[in-house]
Nucleic acid binder design. Structure first.
Ligand SMILES: [Mn+2]
Ligand SMILES: [Mn+2]
Ligand SMILES: [Mn+2]
Ligand SMILES: [Mn+2]
Lengths: 220, 220
DNA sequence: CTCCTTACTTTGATTAGTCAAAATAAACGT
DNA sequence: ACGTTTATTTTGACTAATCAAAGTAAGGAG
């Protein structure tokens, strides 16, 4: 069995390569895993030996099909656990990522399947992040964000791509949860400010950086 | 935070001293944890340094109040998780011990509290094992067993003190679950056989060793 | 009392995962 | 093209947890 350290390495590689086939840089991986770069080099060489990754020295690293399989399974556990914590245990959506970070390594495939059934086979977690299917298919659709969308068109919020408790709390308190309707009333590149407005609410100012973490779709 | 290894050592010390204040032998701990005795000696000395246990060289080891506190919290997690797996996820009661062995180290106190509420604050797990209270109180009542009880009196099954899947499966298939009514029709010390009979069922033969793992109470 | 058995402890080695700091390679700017 | 910056790799050391095997202490059996 893969240790939880190995599972974390593989999962973060998957997240950092977001669908595509690009190489993940050692630095980015070190940053994501909160370890020093030398540690990543060492671990990646071990993961290459065990056939989970392909290591291109001084360029980066890429998951093999075997490594991707493991990573998808861990990510599926992570996101289904988040669903469980929010929908069944009624926990705060800002707190569940930390919990799931541990639980993703502790639940068996058997428990995973039963959780999935209990929850009614959800396709996204509470943050709108897509849940890999049991067969290992992961939705990789690319969405616009509040920083890139057209102004004044009605939008639907799809996903929040920042798991930090602070940001999620901010999003929640301003009613920008996945599923909500919103539109951008103004975007000023010079000041770096975006103004968003819910159908029945006062305008809300966001930095471009923050707006870029809120994925949207044109309202149907 | 205590590592999961430390949590396992402390939990098993608690289980091996069953309520009382007796010293736990190093050999028994090694057996329970499936490690060699030398490993236990080393770990116990470290646990003594961290104030979790008191080590009497060549005699045994005992939990300090601090160590007992940790152990009770882990045991509470273990048994509540078992309840969840059986009552909510409908898993087989013979399989949940293995699952809980991992999960007991991965769930936070916050999740623990919410699970407890979801399950309606149960007092025992699916095997009849008492669940330590949030305040650290553990029921230490001593029960008779099918090997020690009086013959022909009506009994109620309270608890099964063997977590092995084989034994639990056997118990389940013969309807000896906690809560069921039963009586001992015969006990032969020479042959080491006990015969038990449910109100509406044919007689069942058990070894004294097996009968001793089934705790009972006189039916009310 | 002496020897033996048994449980326990010690010692030395191993594996997984990590960091600090030095070494190296590639890219980059002038 | 040359020196500089930056990312990556290497090296040496450390912690937690483990085992194998050798050493030691106590408690009987005679
Ligand atoms: Mn994790
Ligand atoms: Mn999420
Ligand atoms: Mn455990
Ligand atoms: Mn149990």
């Amino acid at each position: 069995m893969a240790t939880s350290t190995v599972e974390n390495y593989l999962k973060h590689m998957l997240l950092l390569s977001e669908g595509g086939e690009e190489l993940v840089s050692m630095g980015a991986l070190a940053e994501a895993l909160a370890v020093v770069p030398g540690t990543v080099t060492t671990m990646v060489k071990a993961l290459a030996d065990s056939g989970h990754v392909e290591h291109r020295p001084r360029q980066g690293v890429r998951l093999t099909p075997a490594g991707r399989r493991v990573a998808l399974n861990v990510l599926r556990k992570h996101r289904l656990v988040e669903c469980f914590l929010v929908n069944v245990l009624k926990m705060d959506w800002a707190a569940v990522d930390t919990e799931a970070e541990q639980l993703e390594h502790a639940i068996s495939d058997e428990v995973l399947d039963r959780l999935d059934a209990l929850l009614g086979h959800p396709e996204t977690d509470p943050h709108g992040d897509p849940i890999p299917s049991r067969q290992g298919k992961l939705d990789s659709q690319v969405y616009a964000t509040l920083a890139t969308c057209v102004v004044e068109k009605p939008l639907r919020i799809i996903r929040i791509t920042d798991q930090s408790a602070e940001f999620l709390l901010f999003v929640e308190q301003n009613g920008l949860l996945p599923g909500e309707s919103v539109r951008v009333t103004e975007r000023n590149l010079a000041s770096g400010l975006v103004t968003a407005k819910k159908t029945a609410g006062r305008p809300l100012a966001l930095s471009l950086a923050a707006a870029g973490k809120i994925l949207i779709q044109p309202a149907r």
